[in-house]
Design a protein around this nucleic acid. Sequence first.
DNA 1: GGAACTTCTGACCATCCGGACAAATTCTTC
DNA 2: GAAGAATTTGTCCGGATGGTCAGAAGTTCC
Lengths: 223, 223
Amino acid sequence: MSYETAIEGQDLARARGSKKRTRIQAENEERILDAALEVFSRYGFRGATVDQIAEKAGMSKPNLLYYFRRKHDLYTAVLTRTLDMWLAPFGEMAEDGDPEAELTGYIRQKLEQSRDFPHESRLFIGEILLGAPHLDAVLKTDLKSIVEEKAEVIRRWIGDGKLLDVDPVHLIFMIWATTQHYADFDAQIRSVLGRGIEDPATFRAASDTVIGVLMRGILPAHG
Amino acid sequence: MSYETAIEGQDLARARGSKKRTRIQAENEERILDAALEVFSRYGFRGATVDQIAEKAGMSKPNLLYYFRRKHDLYTAVLTRTLDMWLAPFGEMAEDGDPEAELTGYIRQKLEQSRDFPHESRLFIGEILLGAPHLDAVLKTDLKSIVEEKAEVIRRWIGDGKLLDVDPVHLIFMIWATTQHYADFDAQIRSVLGRGIEDPATFRAASDTVIGVLMRGILPAHG
DNA sequence: GGAACTTCTGACCATCCGGACAAATTCTTC
DNA sequence: GAAGAATTTGTCCGGATGGTCAGAAGTTCC
């Protein structure tokens, strides 16, 4: 599954129709995308400035615009680069596994994502706040279908008596909400706890609580 | 509990030291604040423009700036106006009540907030994404202390054997995450479900699932 | 070591944005 | 209905912002 949008001139190699991308090209584009991720995730599309991204990437604005001709191209490039990786753990949830193990593993992976890639999480919520203008098509097709697919898996587990009867889609939302919360609300969590999810003890407390409450909430009483 | 910041010139009446606010003043300030809430919650502080807010409020930019001299004043005015109301249900959770009823009621109220005041929810997450520059002091004092206070209540319930042994602060985070998710991720939810939390059936499914899973996750097995 | 190509930069431009200001209009009060 | 206060608007300004362009500097490859 690939979410690449077919926008012309998105990056240099594609725009020029050249065969190979140079070493410098690859390096700089990566530096730019990393910088853009940080800035877009904090300020949103409108609030971010090309100058700011260029400075963070360690190059001049015209040079950045040599690689991505428009701010908008850069934004969609960051979004699409991130989306596949972001949804990957969801796809790994297997029907033939043990529901408790599969779901526990998935929740843990999502918490690790929030810890290790908070900018990516915040980039998406910024786009969602805007009404998802750039992701709308992808959400309504690819995301919707993969959610329905996994909801069907959960429904079968419920039918087999392995899970309590809960609405599968809302359960998925609960998992996303509780795990991404640690990335998206980092500043708030840090104010209350004094530390964020990157702190090992905090990560352990968070994952114990989230996994404990959610799993007890959906597993049949044992015994 | 009031979170009013002591910023000079925040609004007209205060800035001029006048005794009463006129009818027109009150009306226009409210219209401006409503419009500002919508725009700031979508685009964030930087991404919002004064022109856009003025247009949505149905007045010219200079006239808006007559009421709020700086964009920044308007932003903090919207934030502070919203914060008290936003945290109100949390304060209502009473220690002497039944834990199950108190927590269920609180979760339901938070879901109603997400349904009825989604802009307010999104305004806050925008501020949090920015690193909470305007709310930092308030979060580290008032929010922190009220969270600690309620965590203590939950801890006592646990001590009395009325709740399972979970980390109270992370439980609070879970409640906030799962309920505000329906406001903050509205666009995503709408893409997947085809409708949002304002739809009665969706609201019912969401609240049944969230309340069901969370309460089963923290209440001692009955029987 | 030089031709051809890629990468980078400084200077520049049009537009947008937050904000100032004086003058015009409307409202309140007597 | 006139004085005085409150409200509204048009116009303007300086700085920021997205983006262009011509040419300089660097790289690759023969």
